[in-house]
Simulated assay, not measured.
Amino acid sequence: MEMNEKPHLLLIDGMALLFRSFFATSAMGHYFPNAEGVPTNGVQGFARHTMTAMSLFKPSHMAVCWDMGAHTFRNDLFDGYKANRPAPAPELVPQFDMTRNLSEMIGWKNYGIPGMEADDLIGSMVREWDGKSEITIVTGDKDLLQLLRPGVRIAFMKKGYAVYDFYTYDRFVEEYGITPKQFIDKKAFTGDSSDGYPGVKGIGPKTALKLIQEYGTVEGVIESLQELAPGVRKKIEVDMDMLFLSKKLAEIHCAIEMNDPIDELKIPVYDQVMRGLIEAEGYTMIVKQADSLFLK
C-alpha cells in the first residue's frame, strides 16, 4: 500500500456467510464430515467464500463480525424480535464455534459482543473508519443498506463465491429516492417480517417510501399527520407505539467503541505454515481453494 493511499477495509458478516454456505450444500445432502464425523460444510464454505472475496476485492485490512447467541438488546426492547426464526439445523450447531475458531486460527481479526448483532459491530466499524478507509461490506442482509455513504459499498452475495450485487451510496439514492439513513424510517413503517416486528399495519413499502420522501423521517410524518389521507392517518395513530419501537429495532447501533489500530486488522499471509495448520484440521477444500488463490 502506498503511503498516501487509504487502507481498503473488508468487513465480513460472518453469520451471513456461514448460513449461506451451510444451506448451499446441505440442500443437496452434502455435509463433508471430518474424521470425527462432524459436519464441516458451513465452516469450509465460509472460509472459501471469505478467501474468494479477499482475492476479488484486494483489501489491505479485514475484520469478521459475528452474532454472539440469539439474545440481544433488541429482544429486551421487543419480545417478538426474531422470535419466528427456526432453531438452527443440528448439523449446523457445532459449526458456529468451529468457524469462529478457524477464522481466528487463520489470523483474521474477529469481533463478537454478547447482546449485540454483527450488524451493530459492522456499523460501528463503518463509523470508526469512515473517511479514513475505503470500506467493502460482504453480507446478504439488506438492513445494512442504511450504512451506505461515500467510500462505503456493500457487496450482496448472489451466486456461488464470486457473484455479487454491489450497492454504493449513489446507486441507493438513485433507486430509492431517499438517503440510506432514511431507510431506517422506511423500515419503521413497513416493519420486517423476517425479524418479526410489524411496523404500521396496512402500510406497505410504496406508501412508506412516499411518506419518507415527502416528510423526511418518522417524526416528520407524525408532525404532519393532519395533512395525510384519513385512512393512512388512522393506521399510523393506531400503531404509533409500534412505529417508534420499529424504528428503534431497525436502526443499527453504531456507537460501540471500535478503536483497535488499523495494523491489528492487517490481512495475514497465507504460507506453508498456515496451509499446514488448516490441513491438520482436515479442511481439505479450504486448502485447495487457498492454494489456487494465494499460491499461484
Score class of each variant (00 low, 15 high):
Lys235Leu: 11
Ile236Leu: 05
Glu219Tyr: 03
Gly115Ala: 06
Cys65Gly: 07
Leu11Trp: 02
Ile106Lys: 03
Arg127Pro: 06
Ile106Tyr: 15
Lys109Gly: 10
Pro198Asn: 14
Ala63Leu: 10
Leu225Arg: 06
Val221Ser: 06
Gln44Lys: 08
Ala89Gln: 14
Met285Phe: 10
Met98Leu: 15
Leu144Pro: 00
Gln182Val: 01
Gly199Trp: 02
Lys296Ala: 13
Asp79Pro: 06
Gly42His: 02
Leu11Arg: 00
Pro59Ala: 12
Ile122Trp: 01
Val273Gly: 12
Thr179Ile: 06
Asp165Lys: 13
Glu219Val: 01
Phe22Asn: 10
Met54Lys: 09
Gly14Pro: 06
Arg275Lys: 15
Phe96Cys: 07
Thr99His: 05
Ile236Ser: 01
Lys235Asp: 10
Lys6His: 04
Leu102Met: 14
Leu249Asp: 04
Val173Pro: 06
Gly131Val: 03
Thr217Ser: 15
Leu295Ala: 14
Lys142Ile: 08
Pro261Phe: 00
Ala24Asn: 11
Phe78Asp: 07
Asp79Met: 07
Ser26Asp: 05
Gly45Arg: 02
Phe183Leu: 09
Pro88Val: 11
Leu209Trp: 00
Met62Lys: 05
Phe294Thr: 10
Ala280Asp: 15
Ser26Met: 02
Gly115Phe: 02
Asp260Asn: 12
Val269Gly: 08
Leu277Ser: 12
Pro261Ser: 14
Ala35Cys: 00
Asn101Ile: 00
Gly131Asp: 11
Asn101His: 07
Phe183His: 13
Gly140Pro: 03
Thr99Ala: 15
Arg74Thr: 02
Glu117Pro: 03
Ile106Cys: 11
Phe32Gly: 02
Val138Trp: 01
Leu147Asp: 01
Arg48Ala: 15
Met116Ile: 06
Phe32Asn: 15
Thr50Phe: 13
Asp271Arg: 08
Phe23Leu: 11
Pro180Tyr: 00
Phe57Ile: 13
Asp239Trp: 00
Asp120Gly: 10
Lys206Pro: 00
Val221Cys: 02
Met15Thr: 08
Gly199Tyr: 00
Gln182Tyr: 00
Lys288Asp: 15
Asp271Met: 06
Ala162Asn: 14
Leu209Ala: 12
Lys132Cys: 07
Lys206Tyr: 03
Gln95Gly: 07
Pro180Lys: 00
Tyr31Phe: 15
Ala53Arg: 03
Ile286Ala: 09
Met240Ala: 09
Val64Ser: 11
